[in-house]
Design a protein around this nucleic acid. Structure first.
Lengths: 200, 200
DNA sequence: GTCTATACTAAGATAGAC
DNA sequence: GTCTATCTTAGTATAGAC
């Protein structure tokens, strides 16, 4: 019922969550402009029209902000991957999934240092946020398995190879495709090699 | 002749260069302990028994220190690679060279962010220092060519793959070999693929 | 929840005596 | 070349009024 304490409470909470989301989005925008290390609470507050101490109403510390960004980035990545309509052929499914993962990272290069590297001194994601990252990884590994990459060492190599291509692309040719254009071919190469090794 | 102005000048310069080398070595030691971002002029001065402003007698700025470290790291890497006695077989030569490069990075993990990533905001190596890095890369590319990896795209992929393995190793299992143990096999995979593609 | 004011810490860099 | 002293800037975080 409108006007009851419960409804009011809910509305306040909702508004607060919206505001928190706005702040996290602004933090990502700032990270894109200045790099993840350039995200300061002063700059972030300016961006959302607040004073710096006011941010402490939403985040207990700078690391809590990082954690919220980490969770948010992983959630957005998972949403894109879940929205994929994967083909039946497992090899093609792996390619589509991998391409989408890489495309997300190219679309949002600012997420890379926080999500996939350990570039922020002292930051460790909370258990809940980390679980999101692990789910993403688990999906990738499952698709690799279904495509024939079953050996754990081969899985490690495949993931490292994809990460290597992506890192080279982002740091040397952001916006281009000099490295990532070889993705499909390399997935084929790794799948073929895994299949050849498993039937030997 | 001893005692002439020229000899004295030389001795002073030599002493100064030695002292500079000591400071750079201490900076690397500090980077190893605290990470490259943890290298502060205060901490470095403490380590070499000086006060922080005294370092400005040796380096005009923090970036000048980074540049000296960058040059020093590349010089040590080049020295190790040049000291290799490469086998005649080009494929084996590539493997030995690649292994040594990776081993250097594992032995000196603190060099990785400065030498091979762009992790320090605003730092660009000077032309002279950068030339050292390019020479290292040129040697690798030459060995790849001789082993049959001639297509520029294949060279890009090979380098990115090696960097990917190394990055995964350093950030997830430093001191272990979970990723780098697959190096030789992957070099073979890439060489075989390049050869198969070139004769097709 | 938001503000002003401020504490605290730490960094790079410069001035000037010795 | 090295020191003491200081400047300047910038960051996170807290106290307390409104």
């Amino acid at each position: 019922m409108i006007g009851t304490p419960e409804a009011a409470q809910t509305k306040v909470q909702q508004r607060r969550e919206e505001r928190t989301s706005e702040i996290v989005a602004a933090a990502w925008a700032l990270a894109r402009e200045e790099g993840i290390a350039g995200v300061s609470l002063h700059g972030l507050a300016r961006k959302v029209g607040m004073r710096q101490p006011s941010l402490y109403s939403y985040f207990d510390s700078k690391h809590a902000l990082y954690d919220a960004m980490f969770a948010d980035g992983n959630r957005r990545l998972l949403a894109r991957l879940d929205a994929l309509d994967l083909p039946d052929d497992p090899r093609e499914a792996l390619k589509v999934h991998t391409r989408e993962f890489v495309q997300f990272s190219l679309d949002h290069p600012e997420t890379n240092p926080l999500l996939f590297q350990r570039t922020i001194p002292g930051f460790e994601p909370s258990a809940g946020s980390y679980a999101l990252a692990q789910q993403m990884l688990a999906d990738s590994v499952r698709l690799m398995h279904e495509a024939g990459i079953t050996d754990p060492g081969d899985v490690d190599c495949s993931i490292a190879m994809i990460a290597g291509l992506l890192a080279a692309q982002l740091s040397n040719d952001p916006g281009g495709d000099r490295w990532v254009r070889h993705l499909d071919r390399l997935v084929d190469l790794f799948v073929d090699d895994a299949l050849a090794r498993s039937t030997r």
